[in-house]
Write a protein that binds this DNA or RNA. Structure first.
Lengths: 330, 330
DNA sequence: TAGTTTCATGAAAACCTTTTCATGAACCTG
DNA sequence: CAGGTTCATGAAAAGGTTTTCATGAAACTA
């Protein structure tokens, strides 16, 4: 079995209290013994048992990350920011994905009970308030990209609505009046916000929306492809297609080319997220840049601060800036 | 603070031993008390403290996942398979990324000490043997896509060499003789294997390789773009470009189109991995299909079995099948 | 020098479970 | 009915750490 503090104490011929003092406090212990303990610990390769430490301190050194269904570059980027920042603070990450319903999230929350010191939750399909109604540990929780009105809950988000409104303004400014829209997942808060941006920009410009131009999707490439096929098959086909995210835009792009049409001369195309691939489509994709990695980094940053200061940040809600990036697809 | 087994015992008017028995063994306890305990536990919302359980049982219920730098769809897919399978076995995942050097991996290994019951390590830049030379907990370890000769080490991999050899044969069969190759990361085992496949297929066909046709890369879209620019700028430009993975093929595709050339009529293009996007490039990308999600799933499966049976699988090395998928880019 | 303060040190308690052990009571068996 | 089993139950130990408390020695102060 593993080497314990007892082994170190025996080897250094001191009591376990002294060993613990040397390894933690660093005060009130004679140089002689300190050196003996340090040597013994090193020679034996002693590492404190985290379970024992945690039992005593009720601190775990881990952060829980709860995500919805993970796919595509968005999450890889997000996790990158999360992990790098967490490692900087010497935290380990406990990650659990595929939580789309309240049910699943509740189970995950229970599974993480007492195993983590804080939680980062991205739950675009659910409201933050409903998550917190569940019985839960009173550890700090930071929500990301989740619907949340309550100012007592810490939230990091980005402007799904404004980004898509801005992008729609851009497309309208290009002279388009029949603009197709490929929706995101039905239950997703961010998808609804993006659609709202699309609609409001139309209203602003005094453009009526033909509801047939709004087709379903679920953020996947396949759904973007299918959505575009549907839009292009319409009698009076749109001159521009706005996809709810980059993945579905990439799918749409392939459908447009399959139909023998050119982007942007026949059909303009836009995405949302600005994943790395968006710069490498042909033509490069006009999209709404979301600082995904920074989003992950900042979320963890805030969570670490919540844990340290024992209270939620002020202001509790923070929104990252997004920015329209016009490339060759419009 | 949290509700403990004592609280449940007090509330149910029994000893803590009885509570523990009801919640675990389920034997040798009267119906009367069983019901009382169950009700009390439910009403108080009791969840056993994992640290205390772990301290006693020296089991944690967590699996450690150590990955290299994570980016792109490959890892999102892999994690999908991993997480879904782990959840099925009621395990939590402790994930740590960005371990490319022995140094970093050693630190991560130390950080996970006694926090996990098993480890899944993907370390294409290092050998499995060198990782195990580090002092480490004697928990089961499964390596994925890592260089490893030792038959005493459990390994799941896929045929990087054979896949690329097969794909190269396909390209050669199309009549190409000047075939550019965009390398993966210098230290990466899988990248070296893929290059070896490229070379051996040439040798088989009696084709000499012009070393100028092999350019550096690092699996990123940007590096694929840059590599293609370099290849296309050569005096005698290649008629086909094989990228070491799909991401760099996507980058290369954009560079080819920027140069005003057509795929596949001017330049054929291939990738490796078959990430979801590969079907939605224009034209769709010929690539080597790797069952990435299954790879993740199987790896965790094997790890769970190692933990349960307390020994490594027989045979210890397992290779997933890959398959050339010819699409419109060749 | 007597009294007080500082300081290094080890013993022991606490954190929360699970599991072993001991104790009776109720139940058999011959 | 006496001796032996089974069985429900609670007390206590163990798991590895940190922290408090007690102890005694050494260092000060008046």
């Amino acid at each position: 079995m593993g080497v314990t503090i007892r082994d170190v104490a025996r080897s250094a011929k001191v009591s376990i209290s002294t060993v613990s003092r040397v390894l933690n406090d660093k005060c009130n212990v004679s140089d002689d013994k300190r050196v003996r303990v340090e040597n013994a610990a090193r020679d034996l390769g002693y590492i404190p048992n985290p379970a024992a430490q945690s039992l005593h301190s009720s601190r775990t050194g881990s952060l829980g990350i709860l995500l919805p269904f993970v796919s595509g570059e968005f999450y890889a980027e997000f996790l990158n920011g999360v992990d790098k920042t967490a490692q900087g603070g010497d935290w380990l990450l406990m990650i659990s994905t595929s939580h789309n319903s309240e049910e699943e999230l509740r189970a995950a929350l229970k599974g993480m009970y007492r195993r983590v010191d804080g939680l980062l939750i991205m739950a675009p399909n659910i409201t933050a308030e409903s998550v917190l109604l569940q019985p839960h540990d009173d550890i700090p929780i930071v929500f990301v990209n989740t619907r949340c009105e309550d100012e007592a809950i810490s939230l990091i988000t980005f402007d799904n609505y404004g980004g898509m409104r801005e992008m729609t303004r851009h497309v309208i400014a290009q002279g388009h009046t029949r603009i197709g829209f490929i929706r995101g997942p039905v239950m997703a808060f961010d998808a609804a916000e993006r659609e709202r941006g699309y609609r409001d920009a139309h209203a602003e410009a005094g453009l009526a929306i033909d509801e047939r131009l709004i087709v379903p999707g679920n953020y996947s490439q396949q759904s973007g492809h299918d959505g575009a096929v549907r839009l292009l098959g319409q009698r009076e086909r749109p001159t521009a297609i706005m996809a709810s995210n980059d993945d579905s835009a990439i799918g749409a792009l392939s459908a447009i080319r399959e139909a023998g049409l050119d982007v942007p001369s026949d059909v303009a195309l836009t995405g949302f997220d600005d994943v790395p691939s968006a710069r490498f489509t042909v033509p490069p994709l006009s999209t709404v840049h979301v600082p995904v990695r920074e989003l992950g980094a900042r979320s963890i940053q805030v969570l670490m601060e919540c844990i340290q200061t024992r209270r939620i940040p002020d202001p509790p809600h923070f929104s990252m800036d997004v920015e329209v990036r016009v490339r060759a697809s419009t």
